[in-house]
C-alpha cells in the first residue's frame, strides 16, 4: 500500500473512479491543463482527455448548474470550487436545483461539488471559509468532511458513486500535512460508506465529537489527558449528512460527558445540531452540560496571530476537556 497525502488520496479517488466509469468527469477553474490550484486533478486531463477534465470560465454558479444538468443527463460530474469560499456564488444552484430535483420529480442528481475548505493556511477571509454549515440546513444535499487520507479517498469514491448531490468539504490544511498508507486502485481501492462515523479512539470518561481538521487535535488532547488518567473517546463524524446519530448517542451514553469540536464558527455550526440531538435523546445519561469548542463568530482574519486567535486550537480543546472532566 502506498503512503500518500490527503491531497494525493483525493486525486487517486477521482483517477480510480474515472478509470472504471467513463461517466465520471471533472470540471472547474484551472482543473484541466494545470490540474487545479492545489493539484488535485493533476494529469487527469492528460490521461482522460479534454472532455473529461474540463477547464471552465470563472463562473461558479454556471459550473455547478452545468454539473447538475450533466448529472441529470446521465454523467457523473465532479465540480471543483477552486476554494470552498467561492461556492457562495453557486449556493442557489445547489439548494434550488440540485437539492430539490429528486424530491419533486424523482430524478436523481449524482453530483459531487469539491470544496477546498477551512483555515490555518493564512488565506484570509475569502480563502479559509468552512462552508459545511451553509448546506446542512437544506434537505437534499449530502455533506462529507474527511479527516484522514484513507477517508478522503474512500469517502470521495463513495460520494462519486452516490446518486445524490454531495458537497465534499476537503480540508486544505490537511492536504499535505496528513499522510497515510491508503489502499487504492480502480477495482480494489477502499470504499468508506457515507453516514458512518468512526470511533477513532475508544474511551470511557469523556466523548469528543468532531470532524475534519480538529480530529487530529482531539486525538492529541486525548493523548495528553491519558497522562492525567482520563480516558477520552474521539468520534470522527466523517459525514454531517447523513448524520450518524447512533454513533454519537452510543458514545455519550457510555461516557456521560460530551465536548463538541469543529473549526467552523460556533453559532449556527453543525455542533449545535449535535448538541440538540444529545439533549433530546441522551439527556438522562449526561453528567455535565454539553460543551462546544469552535471558531470565533467573526470572519476569518488574515494575519497569523489573528488567525490563531480565531481558530480553535489544541490548548482550547484541552482546557475545555479538563473543565468538563472536573465538572
Amino acid at each position: 500500500m502506498p503512503e500518500m497525502t490527503y491531497l494525493e488520496a483525493i486525486r487517486a479517488a477521482m483517477h480510480d473512479e474515472m478509470e472504471i466509469d467513463e461517466r465520471v468527469f471533472v470540471m472547474g477553474e484551472d482543473v484541466g491543463r494545470q490540474g487545479g490550484a492545489f493539484g488535485a486533478t493533476k494529469e487527469l486531463q492528460q490521461r482522460f482527455g479534454e472532455l473529461r477534465s474540463i477547464d471552465t470560465p470563472v463562473a461558479e454558479s454556471g459550473i455547478v448548474g452545468v454539473a447538475v444538468g450533466a448529472a441529470m443527463a446521465g454523467q457523473r460530474p465532479i465540480a471543483e470550487m477552486q476554494f470552498a469560499d467561492f461556492v457562495s456564488c453557486a449556493y442557489d444552484q445547489l439548494i434550488t436545483c440540485a437539492a430539490k430535483m429528486h424530491y419533486r420529480i424523482g430524478w436523481a442528481v449524482p453530483l459531487v461539488v469539491r470544496c477546498p475548505n477551512g483555515g490555518g493556511v493564512g488565506g484570509g477571509p475569502y480563502h479559509s471559509e468552512n462552508v459545511e454549515a451553509w448546506f446542512h440546513h437544506h434537505a437534499g444535499l449530502k455533506i462529507v468532511c474527511p479527516a484522514t487520507a484513507t477517508d478522503a479517498y474512500g469517502l470521495l469514491r463513495s460520494a462519486i458513486r452516490d446518486p445524490n448531490p454531495v458537497v465534499f468539504c476537503e480540508h486544505k490544511f490537511l492536504y499535505r500535512r496528513v499522510k497515510q498508507q491508503v489502499a487504492t486502485g480502480p477495482r480494489d481501492g477502499v470504499l468508506v460508506p457515507l453516514g458512518k462515523a468512526d470511533v477513532v479512539r475508544e474511551g470511557s470518561d469523556l466523548s469528543i465529537i468532531t470532524y475534519a481538521s480538529t480530529v487530529q487535535l482531539a486525538l492529541a488532547v486525548a493523548d495528553t489527558l491519558e497522562q492525567e488518567d482520563l480516558s477520552v473517546e474521539v468520534i470522527d463524524l466523517r459525514t454531517l449528512v447523513p448524520f450518524d446519530r447512533d454513533a454519537v448517542l452510543d458514545s455519550v451514553r457510555k461516557t456521560g460527558k460530551t465536548l463538541i469540536v469543529h473549526e467552523d464558527n460556533l453559532t449556527g455550526g453543525f455542533g449545535g445540531e449535535v448538541a440538540a440531538v444529545i439533549a433530546q435523546d441522551a439527556f438522562e445519561y449526561l453528567d455535565a452540560p454539553v460543551r462546544r469548542v469552535a471558531a470565533l463568530d467573526t470572519p476569518i482574519p488574515f494575519a497569523p496571530p489573528l488567525e490563531r486567535e480565531y481558530l480553535p486550537l489544541e490548548e482550547d480543546i484541552l482546557s475545555a476537556a479538563r473543565d468538563l472532566a472536573a465538572y
Partner: peptide, 15 residues
Amino acid sequence: DMIPLTVGAALAYKQ
C-alpha cells in the same frame, strides 16, 4: 437557473 442545467445536459450528449 435552468440555463446552466441545459448546458450541462448538452455537454453530456457531446461527451
